[in-house]
Each structure stands twice: as structure tokens, then as C-alpha cells.
Design a protein around this nucleic acid. Sequence first.
DNA 1: CAAAACTGTCCATAATATGGACTCGACGTG
DNA 2: CACGTCGAGTCCATATTATGGACAGTTTTG
Lengths: 278, 278
Amino acid sequence: MGGPDDGHGDPADRPTDVRPVDIRPADGAQSIRRALTILRIIAEGRDAGVSLSEVARVTEISRPTVHRIVRVLLEEGVVEQKPRSRRYAIGEQVPLLALARSSRSPLLAAAQRPLDELSQALGDTLFLTIRTGLDTLCVARRIGPFPIQVISLEVGTRRPLGVSSAGIALLSLIPPEQAADILERNRERFKRYRATEGTAAAEVSEARRLGFCIRNIGLVPGTKAISVAFTGPDGSLQAALTLAAVQRRLTARREWDVVERLRDGVGAIMAGLGGGKP
Amino acid sequence: MGGPDDGHGDPADRPTDVRPVDIRPADGAQSIRRALTILRIIAEGRDAGVSLSEVARVTEISRPTVHRIVRVLLEEGVVEQKPRSRRYAIGEQVPLLALARSSRSPLLAAAQRPLDELSQALGDTLFLTIRTGLDTLCVARRIGPFPIQVISLEVGTRRPLGVSSAGIALLSLIPPEQAADILERNRERFKRYRATEGTAAAEVSEARRLGFCIRNIGLVPGTKAISVAFTGPDGSLQAALTLAAVQRRLTARREWDVVERLRDGVGAIMAGLGGGKP
DNA sequence: CAAAACTGTCCATAATATGGACTCGACGTG
DNA sequence: CACGTCGAGTCCATATTATGGACAGTTTTG
């Protein structure tokens, strides 16, 4: 079938030791997994959506199969299709299902105050980003009082881990080989973002050394971002706090101050997460 | 396979006019459809969740199959399992996917003001409920200023069409045979709610005659609800505005006034929906 | 206006999902 | 306490279902 490698069918006489990269038991419901993979890619497209062939390319599932799956999701309202561009986007049913668990996430609850205070104190824009699977997902944003703000991300933006500052920081706090594995699995998607596995890996190493990530923001010239990543109390969740600003506001002197403040913010958020309900 | 079907394959000689509510073509991706059916049932359970065997019973899918599907959804974070009760509930991935389309729904946007004003004016609790597939789903609530309020529903509550006042009203505005079909397909689920197809059908007829639904609220003795249903501009959506109050506040005299006011509210919402973007 | 790229459809085939039968453990009842 | 009932979860032979190569139609690009 699909799969990036190998001459196909070798008639079952290796036990189970090869395990090509991922832990996926591969049994159970393959088509449902595929549907979810497709959904995540479509979610990246936000309101603009994603074209069929791009979904097929990125997921490495054949076009007819993607088409069939997407058609079911379409009929069920889980995705919708933009009439003009024929691109697919997340459909109304998803928010409706989400209503079933409308209680806000503990992370967001814990982060509100620290985000407000920090963005006031630092003056620039802050982002709170979580890791989910192979992606980063922006879940909160605060625009600071300084007159020039770098917006760059909306809440809800989803990207492959490795293309954003937050993604680098997040990768820097998981074990190197896992991080490498993730980069590998995202390789196909990086093309969309003018990123490569190699440069991402280098940045991750650097971030691992420093304890945070600082770099230019890819798509917006003259801007910089600093990200500090952290995990939930029991390692339950992985998130990053990011500051974005025009380059001139991030002089070498201020950098360290900002990192310090971000770390304080992270501390405050983690404290708020500490003793939740079981 | 499953499903309340008829003699299958009649080789294409009805144009497009029958369309029995949603004519499941049954081709394509069956297991994905099943997964979604299961998800919707699980969504009904809200935070408490739903047991495996109940999902199997209601969906009329065999337990092993439900289990296998649910296990995949579990691994993917789409559902989660309460450790204590082993019940399944909607998982964190669903809200995360929903973030991709965080722009609020046009209905909610249009309804905010009218809801606020009406609940102030009438004094009692209002609910805005939509139809989605075979379900009603509460999407907004306003608690009025009168000291005794009937809460009964949370935002996010999902129920089979036919068990709530709003559901009856909604069924009353779709063609009788479609409504009957929906009741039929929900029969298995009614048992959970002490409802039956028969009484629901009678109430729907009554509502169709009156143009609204009024009745006692099932689970809360001494309380009444009045629902007025409506559709979006191009028939795009079906929704109902409901008032709930203790019985003594709904004297026969006031009933008509309330219905009148609810109709005004519906008018205001529909006006707000009128000229959206194409 | 031709080439390229993309969406969507068909169908034989292989692989996948299916559910009956079974095990295990928890709970309740005589 | 022994027995019976009910629910969760597992196994595996089977046939149903999903799969993707090839093709057709349409829009975009050069």
C-alpha cells in the first residue's frame, strides 16, 4: 500500500521487530485513522481550506482514497467544501461536537492572568502554543501595548512541529531521538513552509543548549520571536510561551530580560496547573 | 448491512425527488460513518460519558466493533475514557480541531442581542437550540431576572429529536413523513428518556397545528416550556427558541403573549441572519 | 491554445473490518 | 458465600469493505 519505502509484500516472517518509525499498532481501524490524519491536515488550512491533491500528497494516501474519505466527511458535515476553490475546510459539525465538553481547558484557565500581566509588562505580543501530536497549535494570544505589534499567528493556527519558534522550543524538550523522528515524519509538510528537516534539527539542538528558542520569524522580515517551552505537572501536556516583536525591540541586552520574564510567566502558568481536579 | 433499509438497489429511475431524509448511500466509507455515529452518541454523554454497551445498543453496532472503533478514537485523543466508570466521553482533540474554525457561527452572532433583550423582557430562561442530524443541540442560554428560574439545559446538551419541547417544535416544521422517519430512527434512543415514538408523534402533530410547542418539561415537575421553531434564510439551518418557566408563570393568558414575544425574537434573529456573506 | 494540474469516478482485487463465541472481573442477590 | 448476571475487552475465520490504478472531465497556467 502506501508507505514511503520498501518493495511491498514480504510474506510475513519477520516477527514485529522492524516497526517502521511509529508505534502505531496498525491493527484496528485503519480507515478511521486515515480520516483523522486527513482532518488534521485540513484543519491546518483554517478558513481557506486545503486542496484535495495537497491532502493526498501530505498524508501519502492515494487521491481516490482521500477523495472517498473526504466525501463521507463532507456528507456528515465534518468538513465543508469551498464552492469557489473546491478546497476542504473543517465543517460545522466539529464545533458542535466540541460543545459536548465546553468546559475550558485547565491550561487556558491557568494562563489567562499570566498572559495578561506579561503582555502588559513586556509590551509585545505573546502566544501560547501547545503541542498536539505532530503539530503546534496556537491556543491563546495577547497583543501588547507597544505601538508596533507582530501578529503573525491567529488562535487556532496549526503547524507542523519544527517550522515555528514555538515548535523548535517544544522539540527541544523532548528526547532527541523522538524529536528527530517527528521531524522525519513531518518532512513532507515542511515544503509548504520553506523549512527543512536539517535546519530545524540544528535549531532544535541550539534551543536544547540554551533552554529556549530565539530566531527570526520566518515569514515576516525584521521580526524576531523568543519561545520558552514547558510541560504540565505530570508531563501531561507540552506548551510554549512565545514573544514576538520587531527586531529592534529585541536587542541582545533585552533578550535575556525577556527570557527571564517569559520563564516567570511559565512558572506562573505551571503553578496554576499544579493542583487540578483528578 | 445495518440500517433501517428497504429493498435495496432500485436501478435509478426516480429523479431526485424522494430523498428519504438523508438517503444513506451506504457505499463509501462505512466504518467512518460508524465512527461518527458513535461520536455523536458519546457526545450526548457530555462530561459523564456513555458506557460501551450503551453505545452498542443505541447505535445497533456490535460490541466488538464499537470497542475497536472506540479504541482507535481513544488512541487518537478524540474520545477519552473515565478511569472510574470506564465510560467514554468526547476527548480533547475535538475542541482542538474546532479551533480551526474559531469564527463564531452566524446564528449565534445574530441571536445574542435578541436573546438578551427577550430574556430581560420576559423574565424567564431562554434556550436557543439547533437541529443537527437526528439531534437537538442547545447552543445558547439566557437566564432571566425573575427569581425562580428553570435551568434544565446546559449549552452543549444534545438529545434525540423528539424528546424535548424544542425537538417537537423542530419536527413540526419539517415534512410529516420525514419527521416520522426521524422518530423511527431515534426510537432506540428514546428509551433513555422515557419517551416513545407515539407520544412524540402526537405532540408533533399538535405543534404543527398550533405553530409552536407547549408542554410540561419532562424531567422537572411543575415546569413548562414553549418553543417556536424557525429556519435560516435559505433553509440552511433549523433552530428553535424556547422559554422555560415554572408552571404558575405560564397561565393560559400569558401563554399567548409569550408566544407572540418569542415570535418577535425569532423575527429579530432571522433578520440578523438575512444578509450574510455568500 | 496546448500543456499541466486538479477534481472526481469506476471497478477488480486484496486487504480490511466485522461479529459470534469466549474470557475475565465486578456487582448484586438468594 | 456461592451463584448468577451484566459489562468490558479479546480472538479469529470470514466476507464485506476499503483500496488505488486507470480513466474522464474541468480549470488553471504557460
